[in-house]
Amino acid sequence: MTDAARRPAGELEAEVLAALWAAHAPLTPPQVQQSLGGTLARTTVATILARLHDKGTVIRSRSGRAYAYTPAVEDEAALAARRMHTELEKGDDRSGVLARFVSRLSPDDEQLLRGLLARAEEPGSRP
Rank of each mutant, 00 (worst) to 15 (best):
M1N: 09
T2C: 11
T2A: 14
A4C: 05
R6K: 15
R7A: 10
R7S: 10
P8D: 11
A9N: 10
G10A: 09
E11Y: 04
E11C: 09
A14E: 07
A14K: 09
E15S: 07
E15T: 07
E15K: 09
V16P: 13
V16N: 04
L17C: 10
L17Y: 02
A19I: 04
W21D: 04
W21T: 02
A22L: 02
A23V: 03
H24N: 10
T28M: 05
T28C: 00
Q31R: 11
V32Y: 06
Q33K: 15
Q34C: 02
Q34W: 06
S35W: 02
R42K: 14
R42A: 07
A46I: 00
T47G: 15
T47S: 13
L49C: 15
L49S: 00
A50K: 12
A50L: 06
A50S: 10
R51G: 08
R51L: 03
R51C: 02
L52Y: 03
L52E: 01
H53T: 07
K55D: 14
G56L: 07
V58L: 01
R62N: 09
S63E: 12
S63C: 08
S63K: 14
G64M: 00
G64H: 03
G64V: 08
R65D: 08
Y67W: 10
Y67G: 00
Y69R: 02
T70E: 13
P71M: 01
P71Y: 00
A72R: 01
D75E: 02
A78I: 06
A78V: 04
L79H: 12
A81G: 08
R82S: 12
R83P: 00
R83E: 14
M84D: 04
H85D: 08
T86G: 13
E87G: 01
E89G: 11
K90M: 09
G91Q: 13
D93I: 02
D93Q: 13
R94E: 15
G96A: 11
A99M: 12
A99W: 09
A99T: 12
R100Q: 15
R100I: 03
F101T: 13
V102S: 14
S106R: 13
S106Q: 09
D108N: 08
D108I: 05
D109H: 12
E110D: 14
L112K: 15
L113W: 11
R114C: 04
G115L: 12
L116P: 00
L116Y: 06
L117T: 08
A120F: 06
A120T: 03
A120Y: 07
E121M: 10
P123T: 11
P123Y: 12
P123W: 11
R126L: 07
P127N: 06
